[in-house]
Design a protein around this nucleic acid. Structure first.
Lengths: 248, 248
DNA sequence: CGAATCCTTGAGTAATTTCAAGACTGGTGG
DNA sequence: CCACCAGTCTTGAAATTACTCAAGGATTCG
């Protein structure tokens, strides 16, 4: 079990789930959380490489990550994968499928993960009767929009070195907000995947990691990351430029 | 008045607005459209360069473009502008502000434009009583998410030539769905702005436009675009790769 | 009409990719 | 328990794409 996996408990309720404040129940009154619990389906853990849903599949549910980590991606016509995000416990996946009948992207577990499945038809009808839940859903979607905009900025306006620094800081903060260490953590994805997300080839990833290490900013051992100089990291990441919220 | 401006009529109602099916009223029963009309504020035309809202301003309303064209952008710490999108009649702006108290981005009219202002507090409370409206809002936000993902892909995985081809095809389709010609149109923004959006410097924009012209794909006269070979354009834009919805 | 902005062109440069190999790693079966 | 395999990661050298710098020309809007 990974450290992320150990984070979450609450076999079967939202109201005492540690991720409550990061997830759909945030800001909801108790009775609304109870109603939400009524439609959430907890699925048994999926193992590394298993699909939550695949692009082209009929859209039925959105998912909240409970433990582990998930990546979402789209497959391009030439067979190449384009990774659009990495999702940690508390984050909601599948919102991009609401407008169409099918999922535009694929969600795969990066490590053993468990998720809460929320049938969208039921969520929608519950939302019709539960304004607070509806508002929280809107906030979550608005935040996703913001995150995508930040990602856009990151990927088009920043150097390889800055992209990596930003994404490491971003993971650091997301781990910290889940009660884990901000300075030492294990990335749940391969360098290949991280490079794919950052629009950098593996060779560049390797060289860029090394450059950050040589500058004394981080220490890398496989997927284990230690941030040595968070100040310098942030200076590199955001120096002379505004920081945008970007989720990896 | 531009051709886009001539498109829309309906001084003061949604139910006979030509943009109905592209906008918030789409899919709504008559009585819900009437309720929506009750909260929509039509503002007098804003002239080129005027702000609909600015980054940092308190969030009160979302806006639907009625005539003209609008760009949204964020300002980076070094003073540079990062254009995140161009918006044509029927499109809704400001949804990225819902989650926070302030607008994260700025919206400026690219040419004389008129907009419908929709106070969000009222929209939210109307949504609480009007499921169909709420569902339409969710669809719009989900579509925005999809568009952002497509933009990400466009900007990170495509060459300058492909980016320009994709964005021209995209405008062609958006003009066509507003009843204008798909093959001859006038871009509402400067090359500078388009380049900013595409993450290309003006010099590259100029050379790339020329290359498309030399290949006989388009004919350019200032902002007037004529698409000569739409087939070849699409082959260039999407060739050996999947097409993603991307809005300029 | 004229200032300001926008656009174009050329030459040189820089960052990242591509290509080619080889080393490491972790999971699996013998 | 070890050896092996496939996938992952690293390293170096060459190629490429878009950027930077510099300057002149064209538009546009007030």
């Amino acid at each position: 079990m990974t450290r992320i996996a150990m984070l979450s408990e609450s076999r079967d309720s939202c109201h005492n789930c540690r991720l409550r404040t990061l997830c759909l129940p945030d800001n909801l009154p108790k009775e609304d959380i109870a109603k939400l619990e009524g439609i959430v389906q907890r699925r048994k853990p999926v193992s590394r490489g298993a699909y939550l849903f695949q692009a082209g599949q009929r859209f039925h549910s959105i998912y909240a990550v409970r433990t582990g980590a998930v990546k979402t991606s789209t497959l391009m016509a030439n067979g190449e994968e384009h990774i659009s995000g990495f999702h940690l416990p508390g984050e909601v996946i599948g919102l991009d499928a609401i407008v169409a009948h099918d999922h535009p992207s694929t969600a795969v577990a990066l490590e053993t993960a468990s998720v809460c499945e929320i049938p969208y038809a039921e969520l929608e009808s519950l939302g019709d009767r539960t304004p607070a839940l509806q508002h929280q859903l809107m906030r979550i979607m608005s935040r996703e929009l913001l995150i995508e905009q930040g990602t856009n900025h990151l990927l088009t306006r920043r150097s390889a070195e800055q992209r990596l620094a930003v994404v490491l800081i971003n993971f650091s903060e997301r781990f910290a907000s889940r009660g884990l260490s901000a300075l030492r953590f294990r990335l749940p994805m391969s360098r290949l995947d991280l490079g794919n997300y950052l629009a950098l080839v593996p060779e560049t990833m390797s060289r860029t990691f090394r450059r950050l290490e040589e500058q004394g900013l981080v220490s890398i051992a496989g997927k284990e990351i230690e941030i040595i100089d968070i100040y310098a990291m942030k200076a590199l990441a955001f120096g002379a430029e505004s920081a945008q919220t970007a989720r990896a």
